[in-house]
Amino acid sequence: MNNNIVIAAIGAILLSLPFVGVDSYPLHLIIVILIWSFAYTGWSIMGRFGLVSLGHGAFMAIGGYVTALLWNNVGLTPWIGIPIAMALSGVVAVIIGYPCFRFRIVGHYFALVTLALSEVVRQVIIATRDTTGGSLGYTPERHGEGWSILAIQSDDRVAFYYIALAVWAVGIVIWKAVDRSMARYALEAIWEDEDASAAVGVRVTHEKLKVTVLSAVMTAFAGAMYCQYQMFISPDTIGGVGISLQIVFAVVVGGIYNALGPTVGAVITLLLAEVLRIGIGTENICITDKICLNAAGVPLLIYGVMLVMFIIFLPKGIVGGVLDRWRGPAQTGPSKQP
């Protein structure tokens, strides 16, 4: 009951945000955070069961590029384009996932196979530069001024804010639904001991595949949303190894075993990057006339240090760590060592 009040209050605050005088720039940040949160939530739906994919950059890119390419070249509205992109990314997930699960490719082998997938998609985008613009990026064509429902485009941030908010909320609901489903127990059992689970009748491949496809489809949707909002995509902003790692890390920072973990991860990592970018700037700071420091690298540097610290000291992420503290220091993370 108490919980419901909190949820209602947070909901009310989030809904009224555009009316309490939040500027365009913070609103932009919030929208970006919401979209990424959705992608991260999508990743954690499978990641929490030990299925660490480094291939989600591929799904994100499929979502963005397929939607935009269909719109620009065929004139197909994103209303149809997005579902097609999602379906395609689901198919790719099956093509990669089925053999992986069938042949028991787990742990870091799974991570490396999916990493190869990220690279395949990135290289295909670059190789087909005549249509996709290659590494220079790609822009969906504008459909008139202002709002276009047909093209799901808008230069009104408030409208997009509500869309992003709804999408994010749906992501949390899906996470919760998986958390409460029977599939969760099956997947946890599989993670614990695949052979034993198979022996007691858990359909290992089937269960893993379901959650992988769900996760891939959600991530593709996030990619499409990102494209519709930013109106620009490139292999490095929504695909490739870099983005795949970014997705994993944000979730690790936030907390993988909690519905709000990925969101917290998104808030922290994206805000941090933004604060550092503005705070330190991207100038060259010259100490002597020969030695100059490029401040643009600082966020990356701090981000890296943070991740290492998190994995060593707080492997359950911020949300997990705080909750442990809250509920008493009984059992802390599995990888806590002297």
Partner: peptide, 21 residues
Amino acid sequence: INQLLATGGLLFFLQGSAMVA
């Protein structure tokens, strides 16, 4: 997988350091 991710953190750290320096 945690070991793999930690060295992934180092990847960003080393890239960032190289960029700064």
